[in-house]
Amino acid sequence: MNLISVTSPHTTGPSRTQRVMAQVLLATLPGLAVLCGLFGWGSLINVVWACAAALACEAAVLRLRGKPVGFHLADGSALVTAVLLALAIPPTAPWWLTLVGVGFAIIFAKQLYGGLGMNPFNPAMAGYVLLLISFPVDMTRWLPPFEAPDLATSLQLFLGRDHGIDALTGATPLDSLRTWAGDAAALAAQPALHGTFAGLGWEWVNLAFLAGGLWLLWRRVITWHIPAALLGALALCALPFWLHDSARFASPLFHLFSGAAMFGAFFIATDPVSAATSRTGRLIYAALIGVLIWVIRSFGGYPDAMAFAVLLLNLAAPTIDYYTQPRSYGHSKPKRGIGG
């Protein structure tokens, strides 16, 4: 009889990292579908291209670092980073834009910090912010919803050949708000701001991501803490100002269903690696992201703020953890600091 000798416990639960990653990928599908429906094939092309680029980058770096390539690629984390970044990039993006973003996210924001689990910043958002700062024009060229170009145009855009692209683009709801805030008449004249219940088109994108996020919650891949605190804080910040001056400030509903609100709340801020650890910590972390989003959207220089807010709070996560250690069994009060 051959016996294996291992440390206890001898049985393990069903949860696996690969499965977690796969479920996150699955949950992005509704959002991807709506994006494709509204803006054409661009997003899908981006996603496929980003995945390929991410796997290549990850494999190359793992090889350089002398790590087992197949073993680490199999955890699926590179794919999640790639998909999340591709969904955030406009569907009009040319191939090199995606490549630069994904390459930076995988090589610099993830692997150079030590790979999965060691990165202090959300890799997808780090890549996104790099692109947003370096190529602001390309990164803000969204198409108007419901006027999806055909596959050929999308491919032309992806290959960077179409020079008449500016004729195609339109302002997103957040762009419009940013431009016309304070002018009630102008706001009323913006078609992008008047969808069924929030920004035109984007309400459906956010709804789709909400659906995917709720599925993740139901599958217990994420907990409610981060999405609830983030969205709650965003809405709570928006409410009094909107009541006070609705011509200057957008409604909570508009905030919740515009831009990357739902996508960020369920898919970006919940990235466990770069978030705070404890439950209280996660509540604080997510609430602060919500506040920052509202502040930057209302007063900042960029129309949306998810990436900045998340990165800033990634930076603060260790400090939040420092102050939110749980009280352990048998101890009268929680500990502070990191000891040593």
Partner: peptide
């Protein structure tokens, strides 16, 4: 047989089940 150890993704599931309320 146990599967090989993978990188910690800081998911926090361990903290949620710890009966001693540790991290």
């Amino acid at each position: 047989e146990p599967a090989p150890e993978q990188s910690c993704i800081r998911c926090g599931a361990c903290a949620d089940v710890c009966p001693a309320e540790l991290l």
